[in-house]
Design a protein around this nucleic acid. Structure first.
Lengths: 166, 166, 166, 166
DNA sequence: TATGAATGAGCGTTCATTCAT
DNA sequence: AATGAATGAACGCTCATTCAT
């Protein structure tokens, strides 16, 4: 809290005029981050047509939010989640469900079209892990571009008919 | 430290008779856990012949260590890693490298045989994320058995020739 | 720290709102004490003319600061000196040098005038010991007044021509 | 206690078979040190004839015990004195008195012979401070030999008839 | 709105001491 | 005589939080 206050340029005690507790700040960060990424994803989905492209868009979006745009906030979301008490977690649940539903809808369509072969809920969980873990190793300065990373992550999920044809 | 001591049934000060610091305890947990899992994996690799089976064995082993055997310790390994200072991290690095090399060797062979199509280092990273994330959602009491989970995770990694043949 | 806080009437944690560490408190005590005594000495030197009188003034001043005015603080200065780390000791060094220079200047003049016969640096060291040790035995309630003590201590330092004349 | 035990080569707990407490060790160190120095002083006094020479011997002896022979123990004696409780201090008192009496006897004779002009008890106290303080500044590797230091310290105490004659 | 002094529980750690073996 | 595990009070310090101003 003191570090946060210093960064803003106020005293730590003053933070409590705006937020009742550290938990509330945390909850707000998580809320705002989910809301922002929800909008970004909807936008990106609207700009892509095919299911495969939409899936690629989701993956790229989530990678960008973790590795570029809102990395720090996403780290909070991914790792400080436990720090929230039940009540605060509940308050976020609806938002989180909306966000996850976006994924599950696309994955369900892909599953129906046999583009993917793993049950959507499970696949989403596996992808969540693969994507969120990138925060621990991905270096933007390295050889792998974000788009290539998204492409490779997508290829994990997909059946590989197309590739075999090549 | 006080909670840990209480769980053991001694006073917090007594812990320091056995370990010089919290860091040393942490380092020992990590070390022992890696060593144990290294042995379990070698054993399991020895009991499987084909590369695909070996890969399945690795995945199952890591899932078991996270979700069953040494879950708490693995959580320390995955999430408390940052808590170790440079010196202690260095002491563990060799062990960790040995462990990862086991994965990379198998993945390299699979890549050479075109069983997988993602470059081994990258694939390992994606799998690390997918597997370690299970700690956040997998419930042993649910429908999905550990072996099924391993099978599905394996299918992520594999090209899908076989499935196409069916 | 807890005792100190209790004496002030606050909680021990509150001390750290005013000072970053125990060392900083220690350093401040030492600094303020030296500064105060420096001023007191300059004042006293200004009120005395002859070298012998000035020397007497210095001795009396130092005795007063140890035995009356700032006894506790001087005890810190004399005995807790080792508790300060290098950096903090360095911060005080200049002040301390100023203080000692006052002594050495007077002693150098006395030496030049052959009022004293021991080399000033050494004599100062011997006097420092003799004076600071008084904290271990002097009782204000006893027969010896502070002024008499100063007089006797002065007589240690002086050649004794005058006394011989008597 | 742990450091002390380590130096001896036993466990810290084992120290308590030989001494009931840290205080007792401290008391023994002080006792033995006083006894040793008492003997050394008696010996040295026996080897010198005139009062002035005897006084010089006492000063040299005490300087040697502080700066050379039993420096560490003397540091304990000088500075850890406060660490002893009343009971332990009382147990040492007789020894300490014997030691001090040696000084006071010589000083009394010197006072009677008008070799010194400060009352013995007070002079002893001033000398105690001057001598014990040397532990904070004297470097054996420097220009000043121990004998010269003793000579200069002696000259503090003495009236300076002789010097005037020169 | 903001300050800044204060709280009080908690942290990792130290240390003289005890005691069963 | 010695071990080594354990104690328990104390240490300097941190930190989310409160509150009078």
């Amino acid at each position: 809290m003191r570090d946060l206050a210093k960064e803003i340029g106020i005293q730590s005690g003053s933070l409590f005029h705006h937020y009742a507790s550290k938990q509330e700040i945390l909850r707000n960060v998580v809320e705002q981050t989910i809301l922002l990424n929800l909008e970004l994803m909807k936008l990106s989905l609207g700009q892509n047509e095919g299911i495969e492209d939409k899936l690629h868009a989701l993956i790229l979006c989530e990678l960008q939010s973790i590795l570029v745009d809102t990395g720090a906030e996403m780290a909070v979301l991914v790792y400080e989640w436990r720090g929230l008490n039940e009540q605060n977690q509940a308050q976020i649940l609806t938002l989180r469900d909306n966000y996850e539903q976006l994924w599950l809808d696309i994955l369900a369509q892909a599953y129906a079209q046999k583009i993917i072969s793993i049950e959507p809920t499970l696949l989403r969980r596996l992808l969540t892990g693969a994507i969120s873990w990138t925060i621990n190793w991905y270096k933007p300065s390295g050889d792998l571009t974000l788009d290539e990373l998204a492409q490779q992550t997508l290829s994990l999920a997909l059946k590989s008919e197309k590739k075999l044809e090549i």
